[in-house]
Computed example of a mutant assay.
Amino acid sequence: MTEQHSSDWLGLSGSVAVVTGGGGGIGRATAVSFARAGARVAALDRDERGLAETKAKLREFGDGHLVASCDTTSEDNVAAAADAVARTLGPSDILVNTAAVLRPGGLDTLPLAEWNAVLAVNLTGYFICAQAFGRQMRQGRTRQSHPRRLDRRQQCAGAERRLQRQQGRCRDALAATRR
């Protein structure tokens, strides 16, 4: 069992977290938060300068992180990054897609080529990454190695039991006020 960090209230210690867009903004903040919680982080981005800053911040939380250039619009690039993550850190447990681009101006003046570039990163890139890293998630871990990872039915059943207990407490409290 991996040591749990005090800031690891989600039980992420030892998990492999992949963050696209990890070279800046929300992506860097997400990568650093995962590292603070004890996860092994793979920060991916096209922005080499931003990745250098992210790498320096991740070093504050020790070794065991990967910072790599990756164009999420390229299946080959993402496949190579996924292979590097699996070789270096192990199969991914978590994927956070924060890679995105914005184009200034209104839709009525945006050229089609710019629109397609936005879709390639903001939509298709998410899809490509979800496929590549999702395969690792399905193949790489078992429930025995990560017992905290429950399937959706178990999560829903647990939430339903908690809700029923809470409803019971509310009924009891209401009945007590009517006595």
Rank of each mutant, 00 (worst) to 15 (best):
M1P: 08
S6H: 12
S7A: 15
L10N: 11
L10R: 13
V19E: 11
T20C: 10
G21H: 07
G22Q: 07
G23T: 12
G24I: 11
G27D: 03
A29D: 12
A29V: 07
F34V: 06
A35K: 06
R36F: 00
A42N: 10
A43K: 03
D47E: 09
R49T: 13
R59I: 04
F61S: 09
H65I: 03
L66I: 09
A81Q: 03
D83Q: 08
A84Q: 09
T88F: 00
L89K: 01
G90M: 08
I94G: 02
L95Y: 06
T98K: 05
R103S: 13
P104I: 00
G105R: 02
L110I: 06
A113I: 06
A113S: 14
W115I: 04
W115M: 13
W115H: 10
N116I: 00
N116C: 05
A120L: 03
V121L: 11
N122S: 12
L123V: 10
Y126K: 00
Y126Q: 14
C129Q: 03
G134H: 04
R141M: 07
R141Y: 06
S145F: 03
R149W: 14
L150N: 12
D151P: 15
R153N: 11
C156A: 13
C156V: 13
A157P: 03
A157D: 15
G158Q: 10
A159Y: 05
R161G: 03
L163M: 13
G168A: 14
R169K: 14
R171N: 08
D172S: 15
A173N: 07
